[in-house]
Nucleic acid binder design. Structure first.
Lengths: 163, 163
DNA sequence: TTTCTTTTGTTATAGTATAACAAGAATTAA
DNA sequence: TTAATTCTTGTTATACTATAACAAAAGAAA
């Protein structure tokens, strides 16, 4: 059960997917990028849940649907989606997650549940400001931030407590 | 050149290594853990620089010195050192770094230079507090934090500016 | 010394990612 | 419309990262 519950309360996940795809189309058009079949489908498949998807899991799903099943296919699609800011890579899991705010410049900070593996993306300006400040103290010029927090989400905590 | 400069100004790196090893001996003794030859040497090799070392790089160095050269050897040593809190894994690089504060409970936050690959570990309580607070807002119970910031360190910035 | 536990050796394999070059499709220029 | 160009995909091979499983050896405890 804890594998299935959804971390975003009262949310219709189809809306997530639709919104993500719409944003993707828009961004690609604006930037003269081509959201080809395999790229579009990869994005949809990644968005099927709020759990990060591994490259080879994605490859298997694409292969089922008749796409080419060699690793470069999926890594190219992933590279494209990453570069376009449409997905994030969760470094601590070697897996990929739909970006919830692709239309805004932002940092992807993640809360990853150890139990159900759902991930929530958050974007808090005060943390970003703190990090910039701490880096500046070392005269360090920040370019990218990997912030991945793990633990127990609300639902799994409740489930575990009653178990 | 930028490959060689040292990020910690005015520091004698031998002191780092000695201090790290001494702390390691002490912690292992206290906890009834055995810092065997291969574990000790692995720790030293990781501490040879402030750059994260890959498992297979470490394996190669150990092999040169007559240690067994199969992967499990090095991963076991790494697992031990990680569990003992003597090293950290830099997730975004799949590489390992000596822990600068093994004797204190702390979170490993890293500043990673994209140019010279030196890493500075920092430990700021205000960031930790912010992260806890943000997690709590989602009713999320924090267990681990992966904070890896990349960019340009002071020396590389200076080198690049003059280039 | 026997037993128990921890550590290491060894072989095999699983999982993640990229290099290199050929072929095809879409876009642009002529 | 064709030719040239660029972008994208196909294909094969390989590199890099990590673990499973079981045997042997070493160290600690009884």
């Amino acid at each position: 059960m804890s594998e299935e519950h959804h971390p975003h309360s009262g949310h219709n996940h189809n809306d997530c997917i639709e919104a993500a795809l719409e944003t993707a189309e828009q961004l690609c058009t604006e930037q003269g990028q081509r959201l080809t079949k395999v790229r579009r489908r990869a994005l949809e498949l990644i968005w099927e849940s709020h759990r990060p998807l591994g490259a080879y899991q994605l490859l298997a799903k694409l292969a089922e649907e008749g796409f080419n099943s060699a690793p470069p296919t999926v890594y190219r699609a992933l590279d494209f989606l990453l570069a376009a800011g449409l997905i994030h890579k969760v470094e601590s899991m070697n897996a990929f997650l739909g970006c919830a705010h692709a239309d805004k410049v932002h940092k992807g900070y993640f809360l990853i549940c150890d139990e159900c593996h759902n991930v929530m993306e958050f974007d808090y300006q005060d943390i970003h400001a703190s990090l910039i400040a701490r880096a500046a103290e070392q005269d360090f010029e920040l370019r990218s931030e990997t912030i991945e927090l793990t633990g127990l989400c609300s639902a799994c905590k409740a489930a575990g407590a009653s178990a």
